[in-house]
C-alpha cells in the first residue's frame, strides 16, 4: 500500500531520470533544453507533493478547519518556476545565436566545425 501512497514521488523520480537522461544523451540543443525543463519540473512536482497533507485544505483560515496544506513550498516553487522560465529563455536565446553562427544545432555537427577542447 505504501508503494501506491508514494505515487507522486514515483512520478517525480521517473520524470527526473527521463529529464536528466535527455540532457546527457541528446545531441540536439533544443532537446537538451526540453530535457532540462522536464528535470526541473520534476523537482517542482516534488516540492508541491511534499506540501500536501491528507485531508488538508488550502491555507485559508476557515472555521471548523484545522488542517492545511503547507503553503511555503508552493511559494518557493513559484519563484523556482520564474527562475526556470528565465533559464529557458536564456538557453533558447543562446541556441538561436548558435544556429546563426554555425547553421546547425546538432552537437556533433557543431563539433565537426569547431573543436572545443
Amino acid at each position: 500500500m505504501e508503494l501506491l501512497g508514494l505515487y507522486n514521488y514515483w512520478v517525480v523520480v521517473v520524470l527526473m531520470m527521463i529529464g536528466f537522461y535527455i540532457v546527457i544523451a541528446q545531441g540536439n540543443l533544443i532537446k537538451k533544453l526540453v530535457g532540462l525543463n522536464i528535470f526541473q519540473t520534476s523537482v517542482f512536482v516534488f516540492f508541491i507533493s511534499l506540501a500536501y497533507l491528507e485531508g488538508g485544505t488550502a491555507p485559508i483560515a476557515l472555521e471548523g478547519v484545522s488542517e492545511y496544506s503547507n503553503p511555503l513550498p508552493h511559494v518557493l516553487i513559484l519563484t523556482a518556476i520564474v527562475v526556470g522560465v528565465a533559464l529557458t529563455a536564456m538557453g533558447l536565446a543562446l541556441v538561436v545565436r548558435i544556429q546563426e553562427t554555425y547553421g546547425t544545432i546538432e552537437e556533433d555537427e557543431i563539433h565537426q566545425q569547431e573543436d572545443l577542447h
Binding site: 537538451k32 536564456m90 538557453g91 543562446l94 545565436r97 548558435i98 569547431e114 572545443l116
Partner: peptide, 10 residues
C-alpha cells in the same frame, strides 16, 4: 563563447 556559455548553462 556562445557554445561555452550554453555548455555552462546546462
Amino acid at each position: 563563447a556562445i557554445l561555452s556559455s550554453f555548455q555552462y548553462l546546462i
